[in-house]
Design a protein around this nucleic acid. Structure first.
Lengths: 104, 104
DNA sequence: ACGAGATATGGACATCTTGCCATATTGCCA
DNA sequence: TGGCAATATGGCAAGATGTCCATATCTCGT
């Protein structure tokens, strides 16, 4: 994304796709989910427990994350397991930590 | 943020603050602005030109970015210059690029 | 094939977000 | 000081989002 590397600002379409990814991370519950998944895959039941919201709500959040490509799902038996689609998300968290730190 | 490093999932308050930062990046115009700022500070007039929206709209976007701590502003003469609050944001962009790549 | 547990989906409602307009505010310069 | 250019702010209407409930779908064990 950075035009630091590729001089001219990107086409608006790219910004929209990129913004959608960040929008996916822009909700406390989804951020919690992604943080948990950074530690390894989890089934929906477990995630629902951790988030503490209605199962349908969590399912919706997972759909959001799936739609923007942040996570992938795999059914095994009667459970569906979610995992991060790209391990790189972990690095994004480090950056976020830096940011929050800097602001304080 | 990652509980990969600091085992237990963080307090909900932290997730809210973190989510707010991502929410700040979760809009095409704001992402464009941040991308431009990654190349160096710019005044509002220039950013307004690049975004192509009403000046008040751009001003609002800048306020959002400022409120979550992503950018800082400095008045010099009749212009207000914005710059990234943390250079680390550039790294986040690299991660985003990786993500978009992986999904394609 | 049936019943139960686990997820997903669709509807309804409240809330937040976005964009533009009109209107302040601020700083420069004549 | 008056006026102009650059930003910011408040208000409003349209659209997007978040949450829950009810219901559908899928998988397994019996």
């Amino acid at each position: 994304m950075p035009h630091v590397i590729n001089k001219p600002p990107r086409a608006s379409g790219e910004y929209r796709r990129g913004a959608d990814v960040f929008k996916g991370l822009g909700h406390p519950s989804r951020l919690l989910i992604v943080d948990v998944l950074a530690g390894g895959e989890q089934c929906v039941a477990e995630l629902t427990e951790l988030v503490g919201s209605d199962a349908s709500t969590v399912s919706n959040h997972l759909a959001v994350l799936r739609n923007v490509g942040l996570v992938t799902d795999e059914r095994r038996g009667q459970h569906v397991f979610y995992r991060l689609a790209a391990p790189c998300v972990t690095k994004v968290f480090h950056c976020l930590e830096e940011l929050l730190q800097a602001r304080a």
